[in-house]
């Protein structure tokens, strides 16, 4: 663990390596986030519409809550292609790489948690709000959309921001199926150069910068949202 090993960070190849890794991490993160939040919203709607759909969503959530994320990734990447019919499987194997399956697994996982956070947020809005909106003549859907959901999101905001943070960190698990994100790249560098300290210090710093930025954006969003109270 000598300081000379840090010189490896000065090499442009190494810098490009880390930049590509960071790029993959961020792409994974943004793609998964968009899918996760969208799906999370859809799941909440399903949760509240009927006994069967509620049970299905509940089962979905319980599965993703009690199974480790990395195992979920394995089920998708190693397991699901096996289930597909012959020609579809061949197409999948040639066209969809580990990145795709990582996004699928991470999105579904995050969507489960997000739907629960939104559900808590909705429950936290006092029933009086819905009653008042209905009493004014607003239909159920309008009342939910205009009165309850905005308040629910405001209440669930901290939890939702936390999910984003979790998702960013979860992208590191894609290393296990060969995605060239930040951790994979760091491990690769360590293996090639034995410059362990700089290999792992770089992603540490990068992750910290990203998470602190996310937290900052999150608190700004929250403050803006609360100002209209």
């Amino acid at each position: 663990m000598s300081l000379e090993s840090f010189q490896v960070l000065a090499e442009p190849d190494v810098q490009r390596l880390f930049l590509r890794g960071l790029g993959t991490t961020l792409t994974l993160f943004i793609t998964s986030s968009v899918c996760a939040y969208a799906l999370g919203g859809v799941l909440v709607v399903f949760r509240m519409s009927g006994r069967l759909s509620s049970a299905l969503v509940a089962a979905f959530v319980e599965y993703h809550r009690n199974v480790p994320s990395i195992v979920q990734i394995f089920v998708w990447y190693f397991g699901v292609p096996q289930l597909l019919p012959g020609p579809v499987q061949t197409w999948t194997n040639t066209h969809l790489g580990p990145f795709f399956f990582a996004v699928v697994a991470l999105s579904l996982n995050a969507a489960a948690y997000i739907s629960e956070d939104l559900r808590s947020g909705i429950r936290a809005v006092s029933t009086g709000q819905l009653e008042a909106a209905r009493a004014l003549g607003l239909g159920y859907i309008k009342a939910m959309r205009l009165v309850v959901v905005p308040q629910a999101i405001r209440g669930a905001a901290p939890a939702l921001i936390n999910q984003a943070l979790g998702l960013l960190k979860a992208t590191s698990l894609a290393l296990a199926i060969g995605v060239n994100e930040l951790m994979y790249v760091a491990r690769q560098l360590d293996g090639e150069t034995y410059a362990t300290f700089p290999s792992y210090l770089t992603p540490t710093v990068i992750y910290l910068v990203c998470t602190l930025t996310l937290m900052f954006i999150g608190s700004r969003l929250q403050r803006a949202a609360n100002k209209t109270r």
Binding site: E62, Y63, R65, N66, V71, F74, V75, F78, G79, Q82
Partner: peptide, 23 residues
């Protein structure tokens, strides 16, 4: 080698049973 889905879904099941009971 030929049954990845069974193996990994079973693994998921094992974790599910453990964690669900604990929850």
């Amino acid at each position: 080698l030929t049954k990845p889905f069974e193996v990994y879904f079973m693994l998921a099941g094992i974790y599910f049973v453990m964690c669900y009971s604990l929850s």
